[in-house]
Design a protein around this nucleic acid. Structure first.
Lengths: 224, 224
DNA sequence: GTCTATAATCAGATAGAC
DNA sequence: GTCTATCTGATTATAGAC
């Protein structure tokens, strides 16, 4: 019983430690979004958190572990968003947005998730992992929390994709995995940055444009 | 007159030098495609070309200059392809391919160019510059040959985009610049790598899928 | 121009006092 | 656990002989 009480109510020291580590992952997340894993230095992280570099290494054993913790946290946020979307009554999903006005519940969830991704990116909060093969990939693949989150996210999205295809709202000629990858790719779509840099459009307009190209493509659609 | 003759027929030594430098840029191009600018080391380049690192630096003053030369060559190849596409009678553009069967000449050229890009990528010949801000960006921006090529390519594509929009084959609600960026983004689309890694599809199938999502989007199109 | 050998720098990681 | 100071290795770049 004492053991249970101990594990339910965290000691003060543990709370402090977790708060500190949470502050670290938040900084890492921001830096990963801003410059990517390779360009981010451990010195920068330490400076931004306001502690010495050696102290960072007491919390995380390597730069990869540091980035991995941030990625796990980001993945958890994504999963939370999807779970909440999954539990909502389908009709209530983003009804305020005219772009989401499709009669297909599954498609509406997929679009809501894509909008969320783009918004996060425009806010500078979407960590960007190296597209090329890197030491970080191996660390992520070996991380249970990360892989568990990734699998759960993929499962949820996969279900919605198959459902939307069954209902005839997503092109069934595309393998579900290709649709999944295409949606994931919005998280690192350079079009968002390019349009943002051009300063010709608001964030909202940029999202609408990328949503349009993602779901409707470049072609004009005279019949719809 | 002697000057003209000199400049028309290149001396043997110059030919050798250009051949050597061409071999270098080819290696750099391949390495840029394989691992990107940051992960590519000058030692690797020297090893692959088969000369000493110090010799490389006699040809190119820095790693950035090295990559820049490769990018200029790649851009030149793209421009050559587009110019040739531009001079062809419109009817002859990739008539053999069923995916290019649109009555709009401009759209057909855009699609041919996109296919070409994806094919180059699948061949491991599409150099990938760092999406983030890097020292390479500055070098490229300061390079006349690169920027001239980029502008010419953008002009040609821009004309076709506007034309296809005028004829009602590309969504006119999208600014031409957004369409241009979306096409450029195919050169670094991670969906291609992901699908390739999954080993579930042939290169040809991958191209067809990415072409479909690019031009028609994910949505089913029951009316078309 | 090509080479070997070396300088210079930067960034990830650690030692050891407190 | 935090700090300062340092180590280590990798990588860009150069010196100087041929």
């Amino acid at each position: 019983m004492a053991v249970h009480a101990e594990s339910l109510k965290k000691p003060f020291k543990v709370q402090m430690l977790e708060a500190r580590e949470s502050a670290i992952t938040a900084s890492v997340n921001r830096l990963l979004a801003e410059k990517g894993f390779d360009a981010m230095t451990v010195d920068e992280v330490a400076a931004e958190v306001g502690i010495a570099k050696a102290s960072l290494y007491k919390h995380f054993s390597s730069k990869e572990a540091l980035a991995c913790a941030a990625m796990v946290q980001a993945m958890q946020k994504a999963q939370d968003f999807l779970e909440q979307l999954n539990e909502q009554p389908p009709e209530s999903v983003a009804a305020e947005n005219k772009q989401l006005q499709t009669p297909c519940h599954a498609l509406r969830k997929l679009m809501a998730m894509t909008r969320w991704t783009l918004q996060l990116k425009l806010n500078g909060q979407m960590p960007s992992l190296p597209s090329q093969n890197s030491s970080l990939r191996a660390t992520l693949m070996a991380s249970r929390p990360y892989m568990d989150g990734l699998m759960r996210v993929s499962d949820l999205l996969g279900e919605w994709i198959v459902q939307a295809q069954k209902e005839g709202f997503i092109n069934s000629a595309l393998p579900a995995i290709a649709v999944l990858y295409t949606l994931y790719a919005r998280a690192c779509d350079p079009v968002v940055e390019f349009l943002k840099m051009s300063e010709l459009h608001t964030d909202s307009e940029i999202i609408d444009m990328v949503m349009a190209t993602c779901f409707s493509g470049l072609n004009a659609r005279p019949y719809q």
